[in-house]
Design a protein around this nucleic acid. Structure first.
Length: 497
RNA sequence: UCCUCCGUAGCUCAAUGGCAGAGCAUUCGGCUGUUAACCGAAGGGUUACUGGUUCGAAUCCAGUCGGGGGAGCCA
């Protein structure tokens, strides 16, 4: 089989592509068909003089997304996408498409989500999925090359416990079962068997969150390592992220270009990343400098908004006498301006809230989304925040031996406002301490009998973390919303397709 | 659960209480190299739904439904 991504090998020769019509343009005696085959796009040219009447008829009858086999001579041509094009000699329609709903024009998100099964064929979505694939492969490589064993935690769990989040409840032979929100506790058991393990699987949270960072079903990677303390854990997380980013930059340049991602920003993501304690982070949020930064941000937004409005007015004035092609551009630009203005309006409403949240953040409170954005605002790499107040963290988190109020947890915050991509820490390994924590959190010891066994039979210091795959994809692709980083996103209010 | 914005042709949007419109898509015609081609024509509407105000409602008011963004919660 010939695929578009290696079509250069066929320059000057005849080849057959099997794919779909990405776009088609007709002229009197020429038809330009952009063919898509899953590996890329290639322009093909059908000239009436070069082909039989039958082939010409078929070519002119093709619709967007019709499936076809197309044969012709491959030539290099700078005018064409990918630098090569095909002069067609034969063509077979495999399947004539009906009128395709996703036209070469902007669409709203509701419409696109309703057609997600088709939207996946579009260029940007195609590129994002390829980056996702690189990330998945890089994660496996990273761990496999370091002696980690990949193991799977169960998806059905019996205990609704462990904490605060809402779980999906299912009927399990007349008993209640819940879809897992984390494989971590099982990861600990597996790490005691194999030393270093990682899980890679779906997780479910029934949170009624409608934000760009949330899905109800998402994929999480959770390494767990025996004999690792918090600093070792942080080193591993940092090394892993740097590795993933380097792989994406190396292997996905064309995809990042399609996504219009600023590659230079990704190239700066190299270890070591800044590390600050939770206590320092709170001080930073409380600082007058942070308030000034937010005032500056508000002023910048106001300025940007007035510039955009001026631009929109001049576009409006131009629109009347513009030619069709230009009208199209104006339309598109107006759409961008309106979307940005909506965003600015939202920001301006929120900045006072962010200011208040930052200024009034007290030691002991958890960070909100805006706090995370502020903490990474001046960085081009992720930031590690460690040593959280024990009270806001889960029962299994080990406390700092020198300060009972501090848990040995760490979060990694991605830059550019992408938020928390990693959460983890060192686990409590002492049996009696853990029993007491369960009581403090009002959790039933019976449910955790197996977990407590791990502390009875050869308990050792151990650590691990969870990486959110979709947030990582979102950050590296520069996508605004995690719903574009998974083939079929599951969100509150979205179960189709 | 709360705050906020939105719902007009298949799609993206306009119409600021007074004749419901444009571009794309579709169909037909024209055009020899197009880059989301271009030019001409045609068809296409329960303005989300229910009620109210008004001489008159896409527009104002109330409620319902659906969606976007955010808070909380979190990866």
């Amino acid at each position: 089989m010939v695929y578009i991504d290696n079509i250069s090998e066929y320059e000057g020769r005849e080849a057959t592509l099997k794919g779909w019509v990405y776009n088609i343009r007709t002229s009197k005696k020429l038809v330009f068909i952009i063919v898509r085959d899953g590996t890329g796009l290639c322009q093909t040219i059908v000239a009436q003089d070069d082909v039989s009447d039958a082939v010409w008829q078929e070519a002119t009858a093709l619709q967007q997304e019709s499936a076809l086999e197309i044969t012709g001579r491959v030539t290099a041509d700078e005018r064409s996408i990918g630098g090569y094009e095909m002069h067609v000699t034969a063509l077979r329609t495999v399947s004539q498409a009906e009128e395709y709903p996703i036209t070469p024009k902007e669409h709203g998100i509701e419409f696109l989500m309703e057609h997600r099964h088709l939207w996946l064929r579009s260029r940007k979505q195609w590129a994002a999925m390829r980056v996702r694939n690189t990330i998945i492969y890089a994660i496996h490589r990273f761990f496999q090359e370091r002696g980690f064993i990949q193991m799977d935690a169960p998806i059905f769990t019996g205990n609704a416990a462990e904490g605060t989040t809402n779980l999906f409840e299912t009927d399990y032979f007349d008993r209640k079962a819940y879809l897992t929100q984390s494989g971590q506790l099982y990861g600990e058991a597996m790490a005691m068997a194999h030393g270093k393990i990682y899980t890679f699987g779906p997780t479910f949270r029934a949170e009624k969150s409608k934000t760009r960072r949330h899905l109800t079903e998402f994929w999480m990677i959770e390494p767990e390592m025996a004999y690792y303390d918090l600093p070792m854990n942080m080193d591993l997380a940092e090394e892993m992220i740097a590795f993933i980013v380097a792989e994406v930059v190396e292997r996905n340049r064309p995809e990042l270009e399609v996504l219009e991602r600023d590659v230079a920003a990704l190239e700066q993501v190299k270890a070591p990343f800044p590390r600050i304690s939770y206590t320092e982070a709170v001080q930073r949020l409380n600082s007058p400098e942070m308030q000034e930064k937010l005032d500056q941000m508000a002023a910048d937004r106001v300025e940007e908004a007035s510039a955009l409005k001026a631009e929109r007015e001049s576009l409006d004035a131009e629109f009347g006498q513009a030619k069709k092609g230009r009208k199209f551009q104006i339309d598109r630009r107006r759409g961008e301006i309106n979307a940005r203005l909506d965003q600015i309006e939202e920001d301006l409403r929120n900045i006072p809230v962010w200011k208040k949240s930052a200024l009034e953040k007290k030691w002991g409170e958890d960070f909100g989304g805006s706090d995370e954005t502020l903490l990474t605002m001046d960085e081009h790499t992720p930031v590690l925040v460690h040593g959280y107040p024990a009270e806001v963290k889960a029962f299994y988190m080990k406390r700092d031996p020198e300060n009972e109020k501090i848990a040995l947890g760490v979060d990694m915050l991605a830059p550019e406002g992408y938020g928390e991509i990693i959460g983890g820490g060192q686990r409590e390994e002492d049996l009696e301490t853990l029993r007491q924590r369960l009581r403090e959190h009002d959790l039933p010891e019976e449910q955790f009998r197996w977990y407590l066994d791990l502390r009875k039979y050869g308990s050792v210091p151990h650590s691990g973390f969870g990486l959110g795959l979709e947030r990582t994809v979102s950050w590296l692709c520069g996508l605004k919303h995690v719903r574009e980083t998974i083939p079929f996103p599951r969100m509150m209010g979205r179960l189709y397709p």
